[in-house]
Design a protein around this nucleic acid. Structure first.
Lengths: 202, 202
DNA sequence: ATATGCATGTAATCCGTTACATGATTTT
DNA sequence: AAAATCATGTAACGGATTACATGCATAT
């Protein structure tokens, strides 16, 4: 339901082909809202039907074609309307916490493996997002730079600051997941005694 | 995909009718994994087809019936298998962070309203979860008490500790969302100047 | 010539949401 | 007699996942 607004956020920077959009998506806004290309192409067609974008067919070489999408006024308005209106929050559905709440049903080894994997998973996410924060600070994000070129100098700070802010929230969340899992490992040691020597963990 | 394991977690305590299960679900494991009753009844039927539970039809009054579900050995095994095996993590899809990252497209008022609402939302969740933590500590959670009756005394501490642990993670996450949103409000004041007097916020 | 990357999708399935639908039983 | 709550679903739709499918263009 947010996919369309993630795509509009990119197209507000300038026209992009489906392919380029999809590629840029993966390395930018896809960090905030994941979508595979098999979902992006059909969504662009739907957005065209809804008048939010127009697709322009271009030739490529002899017989190749590609479709470049342009934001329409209606698309811009729809985007701003989304930005101005309240978010609807999804109900909680957290498999990791569900599992954690009944961890007495797992062996101590499996419980430890689960928490180590949780830490590994969220550490990987932190790495991704901090790399993105570094690119923002270094002005090394191509879509952000194109966006900055197209807007008033005085709005640069805000654009950069909010982008930072969005990613910082994800980093905070991931760190909180890691802290929690580490407390869980300590809890397991308390409840079952410390991990015994030979059997290494994942 | 976790719904079935949330239901199995409850049925491990003892047999329950679809209705009772659904009611217990909302006030216990539904805090970790939400599902409406319209999803629970069909899922129970599917689980019966898969041999994880058996349904026993009981009469109620003259013509009324209700269906009581019992966990099977296969159901117990399937549950433990899930608990022992690694979780598959969903890709990130965070509408609030997506919106935050492009907040320069909203008016300062809308941006503030968004963050106030974010705080309100997560504060409500914290309240729910802390109430549940209080019920766990006070041994006032009926499903938990029934579970404790059915297991060995020595496992009580673990069962209670892990349940606490699961909910603590949710509280941590919610607090991190609130902190983040508060930093966002400060950021908006910095970028646009402090909120001006008369116009109250949501 | 071959591999990499450009380019665009379809199909099947599953999970979840929302609204709708129905009727019995117990409590006031 | 009416209201609350017990009791169990169906139907339509939408979004996401996974696997599959196809072919052109360009650089090596």
């Amino acid at each position: 339901m947010s996919l369309r607004y993630a795509l509009l956020a990119l197209l507000r920077v300038g026209p992009l082909s489906g392919y380029d959009l999809q590629k840029q998506f993966q390395v930018s806004v896809g960090h905030l809202w994941h979508a595979p290309d098999s979902q992006i192409y059909p969504e662009l067609r739907k957005m065209e039907n809804d008048g939010l974008v127009v697709g322009e067919d271009q030739t490529r070489g002899e017989r190749g074609t590609r479709r470049v999408y342009h934001l329409t006024d209606e698309g811009e308005q729809d985007y701003v309307r989304w930005m101005e209106s309240p978010l609807s929050y999804a109900r909680v559905r957290e498999p990791a916490n569900l599992k954690a709440a009944y961890l007495e049903a797992a062996s101590p080894d499996a419980a430890r493996a689960f928490l180590h994997e949780h830490i590994r998973h969220w550490s990987g996410e932190v790495e991704q997002w901090e790399a993105e924060l570094a690119r923002i600070d270094a002005r090394a994000n191509p879509m952000l730079m194109r966006r900055l070129e197209s807007i008033d100098q005085r709005d640069h700070d805000r654009t950069v600051a909010f982008k930072r802010f969005g990613y910082e929230g994800l980093v905070d969340r991931a760190r909180s997941e890691i802290d929690w899992a580490e407390r869980g490992l300590a809890l397991i040691d308390e409840l079952y005694g410390p991990e015994n020597g030979t059997a290494g963990h994942a």
